[in-house]
Design a protein around this nucleic acid. Sequence first.
DNA 1: CAAGCGTGGAG
DNA 2: TCTCCAAGCTT
Length: 357
Amino acid sequence: MPRSLASPPQLRPDGAAGLHGRVTAWYASNARDLPWRAPDRTPWGVMVSEFMLQQTPVVRVLPVWREWMERWPEPAGLAAEPAGEALRAWGRLGYPRRALRLHAAAQRIVENHGGRVPASHGDLLALPGVGGYTAAAISSFAFGNPETVVDTNIRRVHARLVGGSALPEPAYTAAEARRAAELMPDPGPDGGALANAWNAAVMELGALVCTARAPRCGECPVLDACAWVAAGRPEPHYVPKGQAWAGTDRQVRGALMGVLRASDDPVPRDALLSVPGAVPAGGSPLPPGGPDGSAGRDGSTGPDRPSWPAGTSPEAAPAWARLAELPAGGEQRRRCLEGLLADGLAHEGPAGVALPH
DNA sequence: CAAGCGTGGAG
DNA sequence: TCTCCAAGCTT
C-alpha cells in the first residue's frame, strides 16, 4: 500500500492541477525546437525519433533522423530495403539492434497496418522494439492520445518533485507507475490536449532543468513545490552502478559492426578475428599513401602499422583501426562475431561477413 | 528480473 | 583524464 507515494501530501492543497499549468507554461516558452515536435510531424517521424532516442542524446539523433526522413519518409520505404541498409544508415548512434527492430517494425506496419503507424498503445506495443515507454510516447506525441508517458526524465522529476528523493529507484516500480497516472491531468473536453502537453513538458523539464547530474533548480518553474528541495536535497540512497566499457563485449561488437558498416563488400571472417591486437604507438591508422593492398593479419608488413585486408577503402580505415586496438585472435573476438551473427546484425556468406541482406 | 546491449558529449 | 549517463527493450 504505497499510499504515501501514490498520494503525496506535498501536492495539497493545490493538487497536481497547480503543477500542470506552470509546467506546461514553462514548456511553451522553453521547449527545444525539435523537428519531430513540429506541426508538420508525422507518426512515422515520431516513431523513428523515439527509436533513435532510446538511450541516445538528442543532439546525436538530429542529423541521422533528418537523413532517415529524407530517405524513408514512409514506413514502406524502409520496409522495402534490406535490413543492412537500416544498419548502415544508423551510423554510430549505438545499439544497432534498434535499427534492426525499427526495420522489422516498418515491415510489420506495412503487412498488418496498411503502411500506417498504428495509434493505439496495444498495437504499438506489439511491434518489435516498442516497449511500454515508446508505445505511450508515440500514441501521445504523434496521435494526441492521453497516455501516461513515463521515461527516465519523467521518473526523475516525479521522484524529486513529489517523492522528495534525489533519484528514482533503480528499477521502475508499480508505485511509480501509479503515481505517474495520478499526476496526469484529467482528460477533459479538450480531448486530452493538456495530458499530452503534460507528458512532453515534464519530460522536457527533466531533460533541460531537472537533470540527473547538476539540476538547474534556479530555472525550475515548480521549485517552490519541490519535495526534494523542501527536504534539503538529500543525497541518493543508493549508488547507481556504472556501465563498464573497456574490454567488454559491447566494445568489441561495436568495433566489429563499425568495420562491417564501413565495408561495401563482405569481410573475410579471418580478418575480423585476427586484425592486430594493438596499434603501435605513434602508428598512423593509414600509411600516407593509403592502403597498399598488402593484406595481413599479424602486422607483418611492419611493426609500426596495423594491417587490414586488401582493398580496404580509406574511409574504412578508422573502423579497422578501432578494431585493431582490441585484443585479437582470442575467444572474445570469436564469441562477439558469433553473437552479431546470431542477433541478425551480421550475415555470413561464402565471401565473408557483411551486414544482413 | 538483472544483465546485456553502443556511443560520444559533458562535467 | 576518467566517470557518468542519455526519450529503453529484450531475454
